[in-house]
Design a protein around this nucleic acid. Structure first.
Lengths: 169, 169
DNA sequence: AACACTAATATCACTAGTGACAGTTATATT
DNA sequence: AATATAACTGTCACTAGTGATATTAGTGTT
């Protein structure tokens, strides 16, 4: 099980993710703090249980920053500028990307995480391909390109290894 | 570029990672705070620049918890119990595992489906393939199999579409 | 030896997470 | 209608991050 320390201070989500998540939810429909928390638990299969100490103060900050509005019954909705922030997929992407990058470079993490990542990619991949029919041609093309590029990299690496082996002979 | 907000509050490492990282370093050799910071920058290719406000207070906490000792010239080394903590790969693994899990579940998966997922796969994939040299043969083989299987699915779908088109004629 | 300069260390104010608990509001029961 | 209870909301103390700034220690110059 997780150590006592980690269960106390560890986080289920990367720093900054929840802001995007909440804005994304409130763009669709007005929600209360409780509804947001429940939705997060539901969406994450119980893996992430955002605490009230995160949600309520954050709603206050978002309100102050003019990214959300209070509508009725303590429900909030994103304002126009909030929608822009929510739509900023690039920065959301960066939250994950940046951390993964560092984790894979630093320490012995990369090595022992690679296997795990493969599983993960496979999982996403299968979710993807079970929805192939919903993808546009352009999207499918992009996915295909990615797959081919990865294969090329693998092959290239294999060739290098063979070359090295030959030269050693 | 990253938004002003994210560059201020975003983090390059998941919560709790640095503790493991520092313990891992100090297990090998005694280091000062500055040396730890420089090493992190070097190891991460400049992607992670831990601030003094993280390192020095943390060294203090680790010292209080008896996980590290001060040796000389302001250098610290992990104690025996510190080494145990550093070796606790399972909890380190969990730091990443848990977050990835949640992110993949929670993102706006339903709606964007394809496009967003492709980006995610590409992101993980590129992180992966830049670490190909760290993967074992077995791992690479598995990755390759996955890639080929996905391509096959794409091709298969194309065929179905053509068939449908033909029948409609 | 005194002083300026530089680099390492420490501290501060901040945001974003955590859980625990306090306060408030709504609802149900009698 | 009054009150008990439950649920939602808000706040607190904490750790872990961020950058900026203050303090300290060491070093070189005159």
């Amino acid at each position: 099980m997780l150590s006592h320390w980690f269960s106390r201070v560890g986080s289920s989500v990367p720093r900054g993710f929840s802001r995007h998540y909440v804005l994304g939810l409130l763009k669709e429909q007005p929600m209360t703090g409780k509804e947001i928390m429940d939705r997060a638990i539901y969406d994450s299969d119980g893996k992430w249980r955002p605490s009230p100490g995160l949600i309520y103060p954050m709603l206050g900050r978002l309100l102050e920053d003019g990214l959300i509005d209070e509508v009725e019954n303590g429900r909030y909705r994103t304002t126009t500028s909030g929608e822009d922030t929510a739509a900023d997929m690039k920065s959301l992407h960066n939250i994950v990307q940046k951390q993964l990058d560092v984790m894979l470079r630093v320490g012995n993490v990369g090595k022992f995480m690679a296997f795990d990542l493969i599983d993960r990619v496979s999982a996403i991949g299968s979710a993807l391909s079970s929805n192939l029919d919903r993808m546009t041609e352009q999207e499918k093309e992009k996915y295909k390109e990615f797959l081919l590029a990865e294969l090329a990299k693998l092959d290239e690496q294999e060739n290098i290894n063979q070359k090295v082996t030959l030269e050693q002979k």
